[in-house]
Nucleic acid binder design. Structure first.
Lengths: 353, 353
DNA sequence: TTTTTTAGCGTGCGCGTGCACGCATTTGCA
DNA sequence: TGCAAATGCGTGCACGCGCACGCTAAAAAA
């Protein structure tokens, strides 16, 4: 019962402008070889008819393939970067009709050489675009210059180096996440002691990626509870028994500490201790919705998780990137900060993307 | 430098199965007129090659148009349903390449006749699918039966009638949202009095859409603070001066009440009172991230908002629906519960979709 | 046996666009 | 003046798919 579809095609534009499809095509793609007069008439016809290219036909005809290289840290199942990786690949999945694919280049985040090796591989493969995260400042700076030279667009995910050229960032504001975490930890007020549990790192290999978050955390405490002492406890993630004894040792010496926090994504490492030493008035918070953290939240070992849609963030990065590659659109925002979500026992369900 | 793209086409499938493109096509679309033997061979070839149709070519060839009728309440700018409407239209926008469009049918949510009128218009226009919300139980039940008869698929958004046929629901679990709201209101413990501010309704016109939410709210209070009194205060939204005097009157009589909540989406109506009567130890919570509520949160009049990605929820409904229409896929979940977000002064930024 | 029906299958056209090719006409240069 | 180069433009094919049409051979009806 519908009248014929009035959506204009190149053909209509050509007729309107009194030229051929080829000429319209040349005007649209700025390929030159058209008289000024024709250009003007075609432009006018396009505006008049409200023509815009049919994306399906476009993609079908221009059989181009886009590859997005993703340079991110290695991961084990369930870890933070496994979620990013999953989101990246899901993003590519949904764009496969547009011939967009992602290729992962994984490096060891404690070994700068492995980063350089993978970065070199990326350059060699000449991808259409690059998504990376910034663990090693100088190496990333060098790499970004090489990408600039090669004319390959790139975006940062989860972590960035400020002041680099033509960049995009997808992730949270780590300082604010720490600030919010401290707020949630101290909601009930009157806090004198806080235990910040940290993971021992191989010394000096690189900057701590959680620095800004910890800074936000400390600043909130400092601003709102100036008399509060923040105790730092170091644990070694590789030996669960060791974690337990370290914590037991600390809390035996400091029974007055009722507030616990971890600023990296592995607060679930505390579960064992919290299970063995239950307490009514203790508050424990952590970050990121890893499956194990969610379990700890569900079991009641921890009280609150500050997180964001990790997979969604990655998917969005791919989607925006393909907007740039496939549709030649310019990104609107440079810093795509993701919203910080608060998870507790009453809203932890349905937190899939 | 790439080898020829190994993405299989119908042609490859046909060759592999030893038949023609037409036969493959008939098998794919279950159009019959194919021998069992051929069907088997084609199916096998498809599986073997991992064939999946090129969406662009498909859409280009099958020049179909899908219209999704959206039957929702009228709204004024900034109100809850304006966000839903925006999300619906954005969803259609992003799917225009697939010839998906939405058409809005707005009814007066206090007038059952206007619902029936619009519902009749929908049936008349014979859309490809319908998205609606369930304000008037019986009218919706009748309408859904008519849609069933007409073979038009439909989904509920934001609000549903349980027990109806082949349905899908996009929205929150209102009971849980109320429960969570009560938890957040009483976080600091030791609550003896709570004021629940409600809006006066024209009597008996229809069921209160916020019933389940209020129930969840009351249940949490009852379970965790059995000695707590919940005072209900009715206000009339149309006269700001009236709101102010009603509240002043109530709180003069009950100065001990420090906890305020509103279970509908218009907690911002309290701003004026809260601005004129500041207090350190008062807690106010509300629901939904309307622009005015966000302002109240930013200004510090209210402390916490329980909400969800309203626009995103609508976009998702459109997206899933077009999955069903365009790609003939069966929806996976029947109840698409959206995650409940917690907003406070420290994470209210970046809460766009 | 002849005619009609039908199951099973292949082919051609069109969707709207990108791009290579080739033809006319004009311009530059000796 | 003559010939090459450049400019401006139109045409044909391909992309992968949906669908209408028509063909063959076997089954059913006459």
């Amino acid at each position: 019962m519908k009248e014929t579809n009035p959506i204009p095609t190149v053909f209509d534009v050509a007729r309107e402008a009194g030229v051929s499809r080829g000429t319209v095509d040349r005007v649209i793609h700025n390929r030159g070889r058209v008289s000024e007069d024709s250009v003007r008439r075609v432009r006018k016809a396009i505006a008049q008819l409200g023509y815009s290219a049919n994306p399906n036909a476009m993609l079908l005809a221009s059989r181009k393939a886009y590859t997005i290289a993703c340079l991110i840290p290695q991961y084990r199942p369930g870890e933070y970067w496994s979620l990013i990786s999953k989101g990246l690949q899901e993003g590519a999945q949904s764009l496969q009709g547009y011939n967009v694919s992602v290729k992962l280049y994984l490096y060891n985040s404690t070994d700068i050489d492995s980063f350089s090796v993978q970065a070199a591989r990326v350059l060699e493969d000449r991808p259409s675009g690059v998504i990376l995260n910034a663990v090693f400042r100088e190496a990333v700076t060098v790499f970004s210059e090489q990408l600039d030279d090669a004319g390959i667009p790139y975006a940062f995910i989860d972590n960035k180096v400020d002041g680099l050229g033509n960049i995009l960032y997808y992730g949270i504001d780590p300082y604010r996440s720490g600030y919010l975490g401290a707020y949630l930890l101290t909601l009930k007020g009157d806090v004198r002691d806080v235990a910040l549990i940290r993971i021992t790192r191989d010394k000096g290999s690189h900057a701590d990626p959680n620095g800004p978050r910890r800074e936000g955390f400390m600043d909130y405490i400092g601003e709102h509870f100036p008399d509060c002492t923040v105790h730092t406890v170091f644990i070694r993630p590789d030996s669960p028994a060791d974690i337990l004894s370290t914590l037991e040792h600390f809390f035996t010496a400091h029974p007055e500490v009722r507030h616990l926090a971890m600023t990296n994504s592995r607060v679930h490492l505390l579960s064992e201790y919290l299970r063995l030493h239950p307490s009514e008035d203790r508050v424990t918070i952590g970050f990121d919705d890893l499956e194990k953290n969610m379990e700890a939240l569900r079991a009641g070992y921890i009280d609150c998780l500050v997180t964001h849609h990790i997979e969604q963030q990655a998917r969005q990065a791919i989607a925006s990137f393909s907007d740039v590659l496939v549709w030649k659109r310019k990104p609107v925002r440079r810093n795509c900060y993701v919203h910080l979500d608060i998870l507790n026992r009453y809203n932890l369900d349905d937190y899939y993307d």
